[in-house]
């Protein structure tokens, strides 16, 4: 199949060049209009404005925002919410910030499974039945009200997707004003460090497919918390 595909590829590209009426291009063409308009790149909010705009957008989309002074307080808040919701099955990412917190002591009655490469459990199925997923967000975007999570052996895509409730911890200094600032982290990143999945999340899963009536939590989580730290 591979060799066949290579031959086909050549024909495909040649046809494009033929239709465009020139030989095939092998040099990278200059791209003068790359990215957002120049004025937009100068748009920058200060720290408190970024937090306020992110919070406003996240809440407008139907998410919850909680501001806490430190990670310990984030943990306490999550534990309290979990008790309120009667949550038992919890799944969390294997991230250093989360590992530094004593989850067992905060939630003695719950089962907390950590997502990592060596985990014995069927992680997908466990996440699909979990009440709460806990993750650190890598970046935030104020202008669109988005969190950014990436995948790795220690960071399952499922953790922010399959549980009924997702709690995402977002350190305030990771909130950018514009999407472009976050995309710059991926522009030109070497392949070995490139995550297979990059997910921008802007609120709870939603649909308006039945009579334009907004429904929350169609396939993904219906309840999403952003815990802003700092």
């Amino acid at each position: 199949m591979n060799e066949e595909s290579r031959i086909k590829q050549d024909r495909f590209m040649q046809r494009i060049a033929d239709r465009l009426g020139r030989p095939r291009l092998t040099e990278k063409p200059p791209h003068p209009h790359k990215g957002a308009p120049p004025d937009w790149r100068r748009f920058s909010l200060d720290r408190e404005e970024r937090i306020a705009l992110f919070s406003e957008n996240w809440q407008k989309a139907g998410g919850h925002v909680v501001r806490v002074p430190d990670l310990e307080a984030a943990k306490t808040y999550i534990a309290q919410k979990a008790k309120e919701l009667g949550a038992y099955a919890i799944i969390r990412q294997n991230q250093p910030e989360l590992n530094a917190l004593d989850w067992q002591q905060a939630l003695p009655e719950a089962e907390i499974v950590v997502w990592h490469s060596e985990q014995q459990k069927d992680l997908l199925r466990y996440a699909a039945g979990a009440d709460i997923g806990i993750t650190m967000a890598e970046y935030g975007i104020a202008y669109t009200g988005s969190l950014v999570c990436t995948s790795s052996g220690n960071q399952g895509r499922s953790v922010s997707l399959l549980p009924a409730v997702v709690m995402a911890i977002l350190p305030a200094e990771r909130i950018a004003t514009r999407m472009g600032e976050v995309l710059a982290h991926f522009d030109g990143r070497p392949r070995a460090q490139f995550p297979a999945g990059i997910h921008f999340i802007s609120g709870p899963s939603r649909s308006a497919d039945i009579e334009n009536d907004l429904t929350i939590g169609v396939h993904g989580p219906g309840v999403v918390f952003a815990l802003i730290v700092g």
Partner: peptide
């Protein structure tokens, strides 16, 4: 009329060797 859809996902190939989903 949304600022961004709820999910925007960039997928760059199959799961990496150590990944547990994808």
């Amino acid at each position: 009329g949304q600022k961004l859809t709820v999910y925007m996902s960039g997928i760059s190939g199959p799961r990496r060797a150590e990944d547990r989903d994808g």
